[in-house]
Nucleic acid binder design. Structure first.
Lengths: 352, 352
DNA sequence: AATAGGTGGGCAAAATTTTGCGCAACTTTC
DNA sequence: GAAAGTTGCGCAAAATTTTGCCCACCTATT
């Protein structure tokens, strides 16, 4: 059989009506065992596959879902994508993707495109600057559920999955104190980001829990063009035991500076990053960091979305904060047996 | 207007037939200026968007294309994805994605899925172990063009985009010789991979061009479980000036071994990687490596696929080899002014 | 006045699949 | 032997859009 075989091809070959073929294939209504078998055999032999456009048109759903991320090349987002892709596949859905690259207008276009494509649902990590969410609202009003990942929107009553950066941040600071560090610097991120705020708050809380005074001179801001000079000053004064950073990249820069000043990591100064980018594994020494369960976030977001798709009338929304956890590597001193990678995974899994 | 507005809604509101509305919208047949304007205005006001399933069913094409990659979390592939996504978007197509994770059966499932979804074309980087290409052949016979990226298939007469690893490999070896290295080791990849073969051949050619003897003892195979011992032996014997590697990760491992043996990189031994993974930037010293234009490959593959989609009857196939180029960093000695990043980009761009 | 030509718009088929309803044939029940 | 129930299958509508063909009307030509 050349070309795509359709239901009517099978019907005419077998001398039955298309409806009979359809019923035989879909295990539906009343049909004799022989007819069904004959249809099944021929469909198998000819490799019949239903035309999704016809089915979608009729059923008013596509089993397609759309994912919008800032970009793909950032390792973190590629892992989110991976998680989403896995779950979506496991459930027989298909994945449309798009990026907005931090551009609000591209984001609007992407959301509208997916909505016009009649996807069954959308997972999105919106652009930092987005404050007008009407494009998402349009989709929701067209009964296309939206789940946010990594970034949430207070104004919209949708499900979302974010990370709780707080516990990992607390854990890392406590670990530093427990390995004998007292003069602990934090290099903070942009002020308006909630993640940045949470990591800073976790740093303060960790110190408090260990009874160490929080001091302003130890809190550097990566947005401040002079943060490196401030750090160098502290290093020169020997006024630093450890550095915790908003990202692994900042940690990388801190390590470079420490090396320039002849400091050994971790013997003179411990360093902790945040995010578990590949850079963390491959710098020397390997970086102790706080891992965000990126893939689990993608998975959870997809699971939540599928739940919404299958329960279209439920007004419930589910919000999840997946916890972060410290992973110990060579850039900090060691006190206790290291948590194995498998243990870590199981911690993150049980959390999700 | 609540819910999705369709052509008939506009037709009844305006007291015309659906065909008139369709014609007004599609700038098609004969229609009076006033009627067209009235339709256009109402369509705009009500936010009419054609139902893609109905259109696809009728037109027998979807403006969807499918992309299959080994995985997303590898930086190289995420850049390929990025390139494909950009071109596809620019041309008003939409992108379905899938991974096979090196598993032949997943690959078959992914290809069949995309074919059954009636995508207009498929871009694929198949699994290493794949030797039976019938699933791709099925798609092609169903008039779904296939373009391979990063890996090509000799048996199938399709367009493909690969990198020509040869010139970059030659260039890197010549650079090593020019900076005074003579005892140059190559750590090769899997034998059955053409990329591995080309990098090895480039290594040999580079030596030949510089009049250095190719010696078997300097050619290590990463598949050989003892390659590290062999390398350590050479190091212990002081029988190595430089190491070129099949991947950046192997280079990373080589640097670790050199450090263990108290060798300085690049003063004692130079190291060159391949691929320009992020690891190359963040290891210490930063790794001299050979960059593959991953995003350009994705772009080209998408452009070729779109060409095939728009010229369905042309039997022509286009095969492209994008050249690789060395990028000099700290892990090799320096002889000449470094090529700036911008220059490098322009070299790669003009090549694509 | 009859014919030709042009314009505007409607009818219906087509793309493919699913499904409610109906009909014929057969079996069971009293 | 008639009524009732069951089984197997076909008809036609439905989902939405596009498009070839046709008709009605108007103007211009002989």
């Amino acid at each position: 059989m050349r070309g795509r075989v359709k239901i009517t091809d099978i019907a005419t070959e077998l001398g039955v009506s298309p409806s009979t073929v359809s019923r035989a294939l879909s295990n539906g209504g009343r049909i004799s065992q022989q007819t069904r078998q004959a249809v099944l055999d021929l469909a198998e032999k000819w490799g019949y596959k239903p035309n999704p456009f016809a089915v979608n048109l009729l059923k008013k759903q596509s089993r397609n879902i759309g994912l919008i991320l800032p970009e793909f090349t950032h390792h973190y987002f590629s892992k989110v994508l991976d998680g989403v892709n896995r779950v979506v596949n496991e459930h027989g859905y298909h994945l449309f993707i798009n990026t907005h690259e931090g551009d609000y207008h591209k984001e609007v276009k992407a959301v509208n495109m997916l909505n016009n494509m009649r996807v069954d649902g959308i997972i999105a990590s919106y652009a930092r600057g987005t404050s007008d969410f009407n494009h998402f609202l349009d989709a929701i009003e067209d009964n296309v559920p939206v789940v946010f990942v990594d970034r949430m929107c207070e104004d919209l009553d949708t499900s979302y999955v974010v990370t709780d950066d707080f516990p990992g941040s607390v854990e890392s600071v406590r670990h530093l104190v427990n390995t004998g560090c007292q003069k602990i610097v934090h290099i903070a991120g942009p002020e308006n980001l909630s993640t940045s705020f949470n990591r800073l708050t976790g740093y303060k809380e960790g110190l408090k829990q260990e009874g160490v005074l929080v001091q302003d001179k130890y809190i550097l801001k990566s947005e401040d063009p002079n943060w490196k000079e401030s750090l160098e000053f502290l290093i020169a004064e020997n006024d630093v035991d450890a550095i915790t950073c908003f990202t692994d990249y900042l940690a990388f820069e801190a390590v470079e500076i420490l090396k320039r000043y002849g400091k050994s990591v971790p013997n003179d100064v411990s360093v902790v990053g945040f995010a578990d980018e590949p850079v963390a594994t491959y710098m020397t020494p390997a970086l102790t960091t706080v891992v965000q369960p990126a893939e689990a976030m993608g998975r959870r977001a997809a699971e939540l979305l599928l739940w919404h798709i299958e329960n279209p009338d439920s007004p419930e929304v589910h919000s999840e904060c997946l916890p972060t956890a410290m992973i110990e590597r060579g850039s900090t001193l060691q006190t206790r047996p290291q948590r194995s990678f498998d243990e870590l995974i199981s911690v993150l899994k049980s959390a999700s």
